[in-house]
Design a binder for these strands. Structure first.
Lengths: 263, 263
DNA sequence: TGGCGACTCCTTACTTCGTAAGCTAATATA
DNA sequence: TATATTAGCTTACGAAGTAAGGAGTCGCCA
């Protein structure tokens, strides 16, 4: 069961996240640091995926046994949360705060998407119960700042925040999955897809008659023009752009509506 | 590593999903059926979560050992996909096809959300690589039908489909997480939250000064008036409604724009 | 300054998981 | 009827998280 935040003692976990330095204590000097452990775990996760991050593997990477880590970190889930907060450091603050809200928000989402794609294992940590670490918080803060320029009330802004997170995380999951499957099965995603389609034609020969609207939905595929990645990745990225643009259109409409008759 | 579709032989998996009945074969008569196994697994998953669904546990529920299941199903991941497709049966087809697209789409999303909340373990199966079972397909078909009434081109419709899935799945994950945490920790989500807030105040006393926009974002909480569930569940549901409404506003704008100047 | 006690890190062991291997008994087809 | 093939069992392997306990190390107070 990975991905549930807040299972352990909240005080201990928050203390770790915010790097409260502990008072000097008796006993041998710690040879490791939480940061070193988290770094090693992130390297492992980036290279081999979250399943490659076992306590033993992380310990081994640091020249220790797996059990040695338990002096620094309550357990594996807590380590995951620490990793999660850490990579949010990469989300640099928005350049200038004087840009129009739409550009700022759209940029923010793109940067979050890029972060998730650099570290796909972050998608295993649920957005539901925020980890509430410093870097995650400051990422949220910069979005919150951008959204205040809309003039919308807090309740509406919360709706936008949730929608943005869902859109970004869903897209990231789709793209990451396509990549992972390609890596695991050893075949390109195009091969994977064509094999699957051939098998489907065999098993369900009347697919076109039974699901006509679905077939029409996938008609008219656009050529891959830009750098939106390999075969299966491209449609996900285009859908992301379109979905985001429609969502922001809706937000803009709400902004116009609200500035006409505020309150 | 749960949740990756299409790991096993695609032909075998599709044959299982679409219930191709195999030709009579030598050997003892099978005492079980795939359906019985899938049903047992779903009951277990609903009751104890996906972690309660081990091959041994499912076998035991059917009076067999875990290994007995491998005659029917290639492995655990495949079983998960079968479970996933099965519960999509609950997504009844949309009532009348003559309703306006917005109502039809909104209803569809609500029904999908309800399904995910009845079976939160479905969220472990990625939307990225569709399982392509019969029930999942017919759920997608009814959405595709509703979207054709918009008159939007396929590429735009695909964007809407993706956005809808992301919103629904993200919301479902949020709500499910709140429920799971309450069940696991034994404390109500209100207790969980207040403890966490207290701990945060201790560890980061200057939180309000450091993250003012975040604090303002969470200001002005609305009273829980309707049946949107317990404490932490309510904001997720309200955010869902607001987000969905803004998204559909954006779609409506695109519809208006497109019917003015099609092509 | 001596020693108490808390600490780090190790080894060992327990549990649970998915599933590979190989056995026996049952059965459709030649 | 002989044979090949299957279902379902037992056994076992490797990997996972982590509990338990011991050995050595150091801060703090008498």
């Amino acid at each position: 069961m990975t991905g549930y935040a807040g299972r352990s003692e909240p005080r201990r976990m928050l203390s770790l996240l915010w790097r409260e330095d502990p008072p000097p204590r008796p006993g041998p000097k710690p040879a490791l640091t939480v940061d070193a452990i988290v770094d090693a775990a992130i390297e492992l996760a980036d290279a081999r995926g979250m399943d490659g991050v076992s306590m033993r593997a992380v310990g081994e990477r640091l020249g220790r046994t797996g059990m040695a880590l338990y002096s620094y970190v309550p357990g594996r889930d807590s380590l995951t949360e620490l990793m999660y907060d850490r990579v949010h450091e990469e989300l640099a603050a928005a350049p200038g705060s004087s840009r129009p809200w739409r550009a700022a928000v759209s940029d923010w989402a793109d940067r979050l998407l890029a972060m998730h794609l650099r570290h796909p294992w972050t998608l295993r940590v649920s957005f539901a119960r925020p980890v509430m670490g410093p870097h995650e918080q400051s990422a949220l803060e910069s979005l919150a700042v951008a959204l205040e320029d809309t003039g919308l009330p807090p309740s509406s802004r919360r709706g936008v925040v949730a929608a943005l997170f869902h859109q970004v995380r869903g897209t990231a999951a789709t793209v990451a999955e396509a990549r992972a499957a390609a890596a695991v099965t050893g075949q390109t995603d195009r091969q994977w897809w064509s094999r699957r389609a051939a098998a489907l034609r065999q098993v369900v020969p009347d697919f076109v008659e039974r699901f006509p609207a679905t077939v029409r939905l996938h008609a008219d595929p656009e050529p891959v023009t830009e750098d939106d990645g390999p075969f299966l990745e491209a449609p996900a990225r285009r859908a992301y752009r379109r979905g985001m643009s429609m969502l922001l259109d809706g937000v803009a409409a709400a902004v116009a509506d609200h500035s006409e008759s505020p309150g």
